[in-house]
Design a protein around this nucleic acid. Sequence first.
DNA 1: CTAATTTTTGGCCATGCGGTCAGAAAATGA
DNA 2: TCATTTTCTGACCGCATGGCCAAAAATTAG
Lengths: 205, 205
Amino acid sequence: MRSENEASGQKPRSFIEQARRAQIMASAIEVIAEVGFAKASLALIAKHAGISKGVISYHFAGKDELMEQVVDHVYSGIADFVLARMEGESTATGLLRTHLLTVAEHMRDHRVQLMALGEIFHNLRLPDGSPRYGITANEELYESLERIYRFGQSTGEFRRFDTRVMAITHSSAVDNMFAYWAAYPEHDLDAHARELVEIFLRAVR
Amino acid sequence: MRSENEASGQKPRSFIEQARRAQIMASAIEVIAEVGFAKASLALIAKHAGISKGVISYHFAGKDELMEQVVDHVYSGIADFVLARMEGESTATGLLRTHLLTVAEHMRDHRVQLMALGEIFHNLRLPDGSPRYGITANEELYESLERIYRFGQSTGEFRRFDTRVMAITHSSAVDNMFAYWAAYPEHDLDAHARELVEIFLRAVR
DNA sequence: CTAATTTTTGGCCATGCGGTCAGAAAATGA
DNA sequence: TCATTTTCTGACCGCATGGCCAAAAATTAG
């Protein structure tokens, strides 16, 4: 989303600043994936990175900003990868198949990042106690999936159905494919994704 | 699972004991549903129940036991309700439809219980830091869903497919139907469930 | 009624948390 | 080289947590 010298903000980040932020985010991802969100304290993240705890406070406004940066980083990594692969597709069927297979392929190489993403997603809360990212944070994803399904309906590839329910179901199938594979690493991710293609293509036909 | 005087354990629970445990569990459910697992402290649960914090320690071995009792209680509530409704069904198609519709019906009347269940499921950890209930806690559910799908395959109602992937997808569709409705209470739960029936029956046909 | 037992209270404890800060160290620039 | 700025350290703060316990209160038994 942000290249490196946005017109909006203040001075550009120094080299050290960028490197430290990246290092701290990477450490946070690894710690969260290993011990879970609740036990991923700043002290532990700092220790794992081999730095003093104060450095995190120096480079980030607080724990919440660090977590949000991690989410942005990991999430845009997925989006960039998947959207690039979908660009060539012209049919709704092709878009659907490519989306499912590409997401699975990306998961294979980003296990810890996605585990951390899920932990933060489920646990981070605003100061008032309400979830920072709840289901409501999926709205953008739901809308882009609905666009594919409506496109398929408009071309006659797909039957009529509630596109919102289909998008929710699709999204949850992908999330749980990852969660299952994260718990059982020997599970065949690609085969799972191919099964999902079959399931959803039959469901919409 | 446990009626009221199991042969296994020690002395039966006194009346006061049972009442207090039920009261504390109910309070825990409401507090967790409202402020989330992380902020649901024993102090808050006690205050919400109008009792002193020490009472909880007196009636439960610790916070973990309280949480596990809540999970057992809510979970067996679902299982009892859904299994009773499924008893009359003789076809795999009927079992599948009944399962989806009955789960949705149960959700409608047990919003806070299920919100609390989800919070505990996602957040409770063993002393060593590993999840108390992860995806692996779904094994029993997956197996019972797989039994339905394999039954349908054996009668020729359903095509051949990977029953494990189907069970995971089915289970996640139900979980997210609830999560979406919990976030958007005006969402039509019954219509959602009927869409799921359509989706899965087409997927297996 | 009295003694024994169960239950409740409210304060206390050690622990770990996120965040802050003064000063040391390192990098930068003239 | 030396002054200035950036970066880092390690100690410290206030706070909330889960758990503990002595004593009070309530209940039960004889």
